[in-house]
Design a protein around this nucleic acid. Structure first.
Lengths: 149, 149
DNA sequence: TTTAATTTAATGTATATACATTAAATGTTT
DNA sequence: AAACATTTAATGTATATACATTAAATTAAA
């Protein structure tokens, strides 16, 4: 749908201005869809992302700082997210021997099982595959990375 | 910067998956920049957007529902945002005569003055003009709108 | 007309978030 | 070693947000 219609605005200052609003709007749109998908699993989008990061590390436990460096939203409180996931039994804490400041974390069996189910549903996020081509996905990736130069 | 480096992830499932993460990440990146710019003005990104919507209506007062329909984040509490802006004297409420449920709202003189200053700074958001061409802006707008089809 | 349904905005509540501060462990310098 | 600086994670606090519920006004239906 045209952004002009979504925001009921006839025109934008420029294509640049429109692009910024379009990225923000589409980001919110995707996040709302993500939250909707994850709701039945009882986790938020941020919590899902932490689980995916931990899954990517396999059986290795990684520190909270390491998690932050891999998160989409660097500003979120990784400490508290981790605590929420721990309360739900989806992750485990491991005492770090060589540095007692660190709290190393790894995904639990239960967390992995939940994640596998959630990932199935999340692969449908935005239904993007039916809407744009792989070539277009590559193009948008290139342009977004230029914007963040 | 490559998303692979931003998220310390060697590869993604697909270009589609990467595009979704890229949109979410760039959206957060832009919003963080926006909050940083607006901080000296004492308003949040959401509050700024409400002011811009009201400015677009000139001297006409519009309803809270009308504001919601024009907002980037439809889920935010427009009522409370409006109340925050009113407390700061940036907007005015007008009693709506033909429908007493509605609370019509318009930007105040003070709000307009603040907005003009804020808009100057916000035009630099993301420094996008120096990073992509107008043609690229058009392309990304087209692809984002396809994704939201 | 009077009952029910819808629209509009506000509020209640739990959670999430931004950002600053704290506290403990580790590293560095003198 | 002692003093200082840095890193790591947790916490304090105020605010923001999602989502459900409420309350009032209006509209539609019986």
């Amino acid at each position: 749908m045209r952004l002009e219609d979504e925001l009921k605005q006839e025109k934008f200052q420029s294509e640049f201005q429109k692009a910024i609003l379009n990225i923000l709007f589409t980001g919110n749109w995707l996040e709302a869809d993500s939250n909707r998908i994850l709701k039945p699993f009882g986790i938020s989008t941020q919590q899902y992302n932490v689980l995916r990061i931990l899954k990517g590390q396999g059986k290795n436990a990684i520190s909270v700082n390491n998690i932050i460096s891999r998160m989409i939203d660097k500003m979120s409180n990784a400490s508290r997210l981790v605590e929420k996931l721990r309360q739900k039994g989806l992750i485990e804490r491991v005492i770090c021997e060589h540095d007692r400041r660190q709290v190393d974390v790894r995904v639990s069996k239960k967390g992995l099982a939940l994640l596998l189910e959630a990932e199935k549903e999340m692969s449908k996020l935005g239904n993007i595959k039916s809407k744009i081509s792989e070539k277009e996905a590559k193009i948008i990736n290139l342009i977004l990375e230029k914007i963040r130069e």
